[in-house]
């Protein structure tokens, strides 16, 4: 009876581990998710990201600095102003997205179908440095055409005290989980 119970517990554990391994093996895919747009961004440390950069490549960028960007919607030129919109956001687990930047700011219209320039950015101090990949998704909508691209970034630096605190809290929770295996009196 006890052997059978242990066997079933082990099979549940084995199934869970298999699920974990299968979920962690994410396939490498191209950066552009939707649309014919092209673009590139070059950061202060010389790293360049284009629409061809695969998601499997983690781009390490400085926490603050300038980025030289260029983008082309490949739409035919027009003489009339037309509305456009776009945004970049961080994607977390379960598909939850946290917005980073929206454009145009302030809202407006444009005749341009391509653009380039320099954008100055600064990551907030609470964003940990030197972590695993952070998936950034950018979307641009113009004249009914939607372009979506994604790439994986990480900020330069060390995780520091945040990582140490996380390890400590995880160890406490792990010890409490092991403590659940303490026999109750009278059982």
């Amino acid at each position: 009876m006890r052997k059978r119970r242990r066997l079933s517990a082990l099979s549940v554990l084995g199934g869970t581990v298999l699920l974990m391994v299968a979920a962690s093996a994410a396939p490498a895919s191209a950066e552009v998710i939707q649309g014919p747009c092209t673009g590139s961004a070059t950061f202060d440390n010389g790293v360049t990201v284009t629409e061809a950069t695969p998601l499997s490549q983690v781009v390490v960028i400085p926490p603050e600095g300038d980025v030289d960007y260029s983008g082309d919607t490949h739409l035919p030129p027009t003489d009339e102003e037309e509305p456009f919109s776009g945004s970049a956001s961080i994607e977390t687990a379960l598909g939850v997205r946290a917005p980073i930047v929206n454009w145009p700011e302030p809202p407006g219209e444009t005749k341009l179908t391509q653009s380039s320039g320099t954008y100055t950015y600064e990551a907030p101090a609470w964003v940990p440095r030197g972590t695993g990949a952070i998936k950034v998704t950018a979307t641009h909508t113009q004249r009914g055409q939607v372009c979506t691209a994604a790439f994986n970034v990480a900020l330069e630096g060390d995780p520091g005290t945040q990582a140490a605190v996380a390890v400590g809290l995880t160890a406490v929770a792990g010890a409490a989980t092991l403590a659940a295996g303490t026999k109750r009196k009278g059982k």
């Binding site: 979920a23 994410a26 687990a93 940990p128 695993g132 990949a133 952070i134 996380a166």
Partner: peptide, 11 residues
């Protein structure tokens, strides 16, 4: 935080 998995990982 230790760079083992991605933020968007199903894990």
């Amino acid at each position: 935080l230790w760079g083992v998995i991605e933020l968007a990982s199903p894990l």
